[in-house]
Amino acid sequence: MEKILVTTDQSANSKAAIRFSIKLARQRKAELIILHVYHLLKPFNWSEKQFEEYGDTFRKKTVTELTSFIGDIYDGIHEREINHQLIMVSNTDVAEGIMDYANKHNCSYICISTRGAGTITKVFGTHTAKLIGSSAVPVLCIPSAYHLKELKHILYASDMTNYEDELKKVVEFARPIHASVEMMHISYPDEFAYDKELTEATLQKKTDYKVSLLNRKRNTTNALLEDIDDAIKVSKPSLLVLFTHQSRPMFEKLFFPSNAEEYSFYGKIPLLTFSKKVEGR
């Protein structure tokens, strides 16, 4: 069975991802895992026994609080509860704790809320940006202000590199929820233009799923993300899919964040990111 992992810190901002993941898990008939990553510091004058007792008390209290927190979310969306696991893991790094659990337990998707970040936080990273930049498991980023809607239309932004393999992953996500798929390519003025009808027929044959093509011309006076935003206004998708490079040197990651990482800071619709395959690997 497919597993969807959603992370929460019990903040109001994290509710959007939990609401989204509950609905998605129901649609996909997937197992839902709600994960809370924590870290306790041991006071230097405490004995091991004292610290162990404190840890047990903390975990019991937190489980009670999380159970109430999640119950309130169900009440707010007027949905009956689905089977889910409530998991707590200890890790000094929240993103590492999430990725470690997702990898060890074969999770299909990681779902996390994002509320944007200022310039300083962008440079040093957020949990969301770290997941996008490092996770082998696809990441669903849900804006904290997002209002729950049906996932009806998925827009996949493609650079036309390895698009056949990438599109299969997009269709794999779309098929169980019966969402339409549109592949968008933003081309430069001197770039080859794809024939819409011929390309759509080829894509349907290769994926066994109807895929429409959205050709857009690159506006070189804009940042690429502005062109993506313009395309979103035309397509009106329920969710945007991006494939992100995770193999760049750290200097480039710090000063030239990927489009997926950048978009997660201010996007108004859910974002699904996959790790982009590196040629030769």
Score class of each variant (00 low, 15 high):
23 K>G: 01
28 R>I: 01
29 K>A: 12
32 L>C: 02
41 L>R: 13
41 L>D: 15
42 K>P: 05
47 S>D: 08
48 E>L: 15
49 K>P: 04
50 Q>W: 09
52 E>K: 15
53 E>K: 14
54 Y>C: 08
57 T>V: 11
58 F>K: 05
62 T>M: 11
65 E>R: 13
65 E>V: 03
75 D>I: 12
82 I>T: 07
87 I>W: 00
88 M>F: 15
90 S>Q: 15
98 I>T: 05
100 D>S: 14
101 Y>D: 02
101 Y>H: 06
105 H>N: 14
110 I>K: 08
111 C>T: 02
113 S>P: 06
115 R>I: 02
117 A>F: 01
117 A>L: 07
119 T>V: 14
124 F>N: 08
126 T>K: 04
128 T>Y: 01
129 A>H: 01
135 S>Y: 03
135 S>F: 07
135 S>M: 03
143 P>S: 04
143 P>C: 04
144 S>P: 03
146 Y>Q: 08
146 Y>A: 07
147 H>M: 05
150 E>G: 03
160 M>V: 05
163 Y>A: 02
172 E>S: 13
175 R>G: 03
183 M>N: 02
183 M>V: 02
187 S>N: 07
189 P>M: 08
192 F>K: 15
198 L>Y: 10
207 T>S: 09
211 V>I: 08
213 L>I: 11
214 L>E: 07
215 N>Y: 12
222 N>G: 10
227 D>T: 05
230 D>H: 07
233 K>P: 00
233 K>A: 10
234 V>K: 15
236 K>N: 15
237 P>G: 08
238 S>L: 04
243 F>G: 02
248 R>Q: 14
250 M>T: 13
251 F>M: 15
255 F>Q: 08
265 F>L: 02
265 F>C: 01
274 F>K: 00
275 S>M: 11
277 K>M: 12
